[in-house]
Write a protein that binds this DNA or RNA. Structure first.
Length: 187
DNA sequence: CACAGGATATACT
DNA sequence: GTATATCCTGTGA
């Protein structure tokens, strides 16, 4: 189980080390294969311009969830890092399904295992993550995080869907995974 | 490939 | 107040 201390560090280190970690919500989930880092000095980060009602939990203690609504439709989940009052977080972008796959299929209304969690909005739907999970601690139910058994092979690349700070290679993925939201080439 | 869908935030008038 | 952009996905050309 990952502790609060794991998250109370540089957001880029946490984003890399989360690859291969198993994330379960009420027993449903899989291995994290894709993340993106957003530090407090990043103009693309929600917390960059200060605290608002929506991003309040990004300013809370590390080791907690920050869930926000994206494009008015989808939910996206982040893990808060570094320290309280420092708005940095890791966006969880894709999972390789391992547990509760039939439950995820039912929630997503879709059979294709590759598409169950391949994207931040998709994985929230598959794990039933909503605003009710915003601000919850990650070290107790319904969340469960188990460290990777082996050192995963990492690749890095530019982040997705941004217009600011596009060039920073702060998207991390598991090399060769077919469950990535989009292919990740080079390092 | 294009584009609708529609909450939240910011940048204007 | 209105306009525009956004950490995206499903659908239909």
């Amino acid at each position: 189980m990952l502790t609060r201390e794991f998250f109370a560090r540089c957001v880029h280190a946490v984003a890399r080390e989360l690859i291969g970690v198993e994330l379960l919500v009420d027993g449903v989930g899989g291995r994290i294969v894709e993340t993106e880092a957003y530090d407090h000095e990043d103009p693309a980060a929600h917390g960059y311009r200060g605290r608002t009602e929506r991003n309040a939990s990004m300013f809370g203690p590390p080791g907690h969830a920050y869930v926000y609504r994206s494009y008015g439709i989808h939910w996206c989940v982040n893990f808060v890092c570094e320290g309280e009052g420092v708005a940095s977080a890791v966006l969880i972008r894709a999972l390789e399904p391992t547990s509760g796959i039939d439950e995820m299929r039912r929630r997503r209304g879709l059979d294709d295992e590759r598409l169950l969690c391949a994207g931040p909005g998709r994985l929230c739907q598959a794990l039933a993550i909503t605003h009710e999970h915003d601000g919850l601690p990650l070290d107790r139910p319904p969340f469960a995080l188990e460290e990777a058994r082996e050192e995963p092979a990492l690749v890095a690349g530019p982040r997705i869907g941004l217009s600011r700070a596009v060039e920073q290679p702060w998207r991390y993925g598991l090399a060769g995974s077919r469950f990535l939201s989009r292919p990740l080439r080079s390092a």
